[in-house]
Design a protein around this nucleic acid. Structure first.
Length: 194
DNA sequence: ATGATGATGCGC
DNA sequence: CGCATCATCATG
């Protein structure tokens, strides 16, 4: 069963945790590609200095201010695409970055790391940015809560964000082999409620 | 540790 | 307009 808009219309950090174990599906011209989400990051509100929304509703970030349940896909470092799902209430900019998955079906590449995950599922900014996750091409399938405990840590590569970089808004399934490597990963990890 | 590679956002 | 920056990855 596909996750409905109400799933996304909640606090970013809650959505980021609840997305773990769910299955991201991309129907790519008749071919189905899917991965189980094992790592996410929350970007929460206009004051989050790590968020693309920190400059306000610019052309790129405006989508984060819009309705939840929409894909936000952008190109980073000229080489990698990253996919987010827009969350929260309209007008309050927030999104969850999908950082890693576990291959389920039709994956073209490693699913470890946000850029790799997009490449594996053939998700690209030109085709998928702004796509409604309530549609039939790109969506997330519901799944039972994961057996693995959920862990949290500071977000990756957002040192420019000052104190906001310390917030434990990166979530993952403990011990999962597909969780991305990153500097300082899981050092100050805290366990989160199930 | 570093380079590839291009969109983005800012400041002039 | 120019320029620095960047929610990455692969390689050595």
């Amino acid at each position: 069963m596909k996750l409905a808009r109400e799933f996304y219309a909640r606090d970013t950090r809650e959505v980021a945790r609840d997305l773990l174990g769910k299955v991201l599906v991309h129907c790519d011209g008749g071919v189905r590609r899917a991965a189980r989400i094992v790592e996410t990051e929350a970007y929460h509100g206009p004051d989050d200095r790590a968020s693309h929304a920190r400059f306000g509703p610019t052309r790129r970030a405006a989508i984060m201010f819009g309705p939840p349940g929409v894909a936000y896909v952008y190109l980073i470092y000229g080489t990698s695409h990253c996919m987010n799902v827009v969350t929260g209430g309209e007008g309050f900019p927030s999104a969850v970055l999908l950082r890693a998955g576990e291959p389920v079906e039709g994956c073209l590449h490693s699913t470890r790391g946000p850029g790799n995950l997009c490449r594996a599922l053939a998700i690209r900014r030109e085709h998928d940015n702004g796509r409604e996750l309530t549609g039939d091409d790109l969506f997330v399938l519901d799944a039972p809560p994961p057996a693995e405990p959920i862990i949290a840590a500071r977000r990756v590569n957002v040192d420019y964000a000052g104190p906001w970089a310390e917030r434990p808004w990166r979530f993952a399934l403990e011990g999962n082999a597909f969780v991305s490597r990153a500097p300082g990963a899981w050092r100050r990890v805290r366990r989160v409620r199930r």
